[in-house]
Design a binder for these strands. Structure first.
Lengths: 154, 154
DNA sequence: GTTGAAACCTCAGATCC
DNA sequence: GGATCTGAGGTTTCAAC
């Protein structure tokens, strides 16, 4: 999987605007439509492009709260780690769950409609989960940067 | 801005698949194409839909490292907070920067191609930034869940 | 093996009801 | 919200480099 300059341009442009038409995209990268479309399909099949998503505005849709939760478990046996991951995967308000090195085991990004809903989620579904030793939460005051994806040169 | 059941369906479907054609979308929500397109345009103009993005695979594109950095500043005066935000906004590897309540001032999500590149970024551009008191970093071992966006009923 | 040209067919967008 | 229409874009086929 080696990406040439045109592939990287395609990836960068589609990361910026996922609904760009193929003819626009082709023009921007200096190709005609058919070879451009073939490259896009190839990038999708190779897994370089995982999907396309509309970015919704949380606040407009009623999700005014974003919280980061640092979770430590009592047991770090693989089966216990996996069980916790499975548990949070089923909670729609938990959008991200990353296992970390160091003192804390997981960091979670959680969204909620308001503080009350978050407290309810925290106490009844997170702190109360099996094997959870401690949960430290931090409310997001404001978000200065929130770019999905990764840097792409080209 | 009140969203009815069809609006929420549209939002949910476009969050799942941002390249769905309007005719597909219309069929799924039980409308014909023109009114469906009018709703989508309205949702875009109201700001409920902020944009569309291809989700790229970090590992395939050479970004094998994801790190969370907890940053504390020496001064929390608004001008100093804003200066720090401006500083990290210009670093492409810093994808997210959220101001938090509590002991730490900011949490950053950072991607890097490898550990060496991350260490370089950390020491030369983050720890060395003006007004930074401490930076604690945690490497992501694995990511159990990473859903962009928010829960949408419908 | 990848590009480009042409054909076809579906979709987006505008208009009107 | 739905029906109709037109022009534009997506997609396939095939020839050429």
């Amino acid at each position: 999987m080696a990406f040439d300059r045109i592939d990287r341009q395609i990836l960068r442009l589609l990361q910026e605007d996922g609904r760009m038409t193929n003819v626009d995209l082709a023009e921007r990268v200096g190709l005609t439509a058919p070879p451009c479309l073939r490259r896009v399909r190839a990038l999708e099949e190779e897994g370089a492009i995982r999907g396309y998503h509309a970015a919704l505005d949380p606040v407009t849709l009623g999700y005014s709260i974003t919280v980061f939760a640092m979770v430590s478990l009592r047991s770090q046996a693989e089966s216990d780690l996996a069980a916790f991951e499975e548990h949070v995967r089923a909670i729609p308000e938990v959008r991200e769950c990353h296992m970390l090195n160091g003192e804390i085991d997981f960091i979670l990004k959680i969204v909620a409609t308001d503080l009350r809903a978050f407290q309810e989620l925290l106490t009844s579904r997170l702190t109360a989960a099996p094997n959870v030793a401690s949960v430290k939460t931090s409310l997001t005051i404001r978000t200065a940067k929130n770019d999905p994806g990764i840097p792409v040169a080209g």
